[in-house]
């Protein structure tokens, strides 16, 4: 069943690119993108924190833009290019942003971290040399209950430096 003709209760076939690979799966029209990515495509790095678009834990990149996957339907992702935390770096490695998070102890339980990494990835592409205030402003779309944010801000600022130096 195509996405266009799918009715409530029926399942459409969604085809998309997930972390560089062509993937497909079935989704009812009402299935949330986060649930589709997690339970249909096994992208368990997508974390669901509030299901109402505020905490930001479920943020993924859709065509390069940071999007909350709990306030999107899976059918909206048909044909899109999706990157989750699993796809930010080559398997078995970490990119400069992830390394900066580890270095600055910018995560404790790590539950909110995948969403923050995705938002920061989009943000740093658009704002390669951010001020601390800009980083905090971007980060205010995420709730982290462990860190108090200071270490996350430091990590993103350092990653911005590393990225702009081409590291």
């Amino acid at each position: 069943m195509s996405v266009q003709t799918c009715l409530a209760g029926q399942k459409a076939t969604i085809e998309l690119t997930l972390n560089g690979q062509r993937r497909s799966g079935k989704a009812e029209p009402r299935l949330l993108l986060c649930d589709f990515l997690r339970h249909e495509l096994q992208a368990f790095g997508v974390h669901v924190g509030c299901e109402h678009g505020i905490c930001g834990a479920c943020t993924v990149l859709v065509d390069g833009r940071a999007v909350r996957s709990c306030t999107q339907y899976a059918v909206q992702a048909d044909g899109r290019d999706i990157v989750t935390v699993e796809g930010l770096a080559e398997a078995g490695t970490m990119n400069a942003l992830q390394r900066a998070f580890a270095k600055h102890h910018a995560l404790q339980c790590g539950y909110c971290t995948p969403g923050i990494l995705c938002s920061a990835t989009h943000f740093l592409r658009e704002t390669p040399a951010p001020t601390e205030r800009e980083v905090r402003d971007m980060l205010s779309g995420h709730i982290c209950r462990c860190t108090g944010y200071a270490s996350i801000v430091a990590a993103i600022l350092e990653a911005a430096d590393a990225v702009s130096r081409g590291a």
Partner: peptide
């Protein structure tokens, strides 16, 4: 010492109850 826990969490491979 850098945390042992971090890499799995930072690459989306740590497993929580709903996983």
């Amino acid at each position: 010492v850098p945390r042992k826990e971090d890499e799995a969490l930072l690459t989306g491979r740590a497993r929580f109850i709903d996983d």
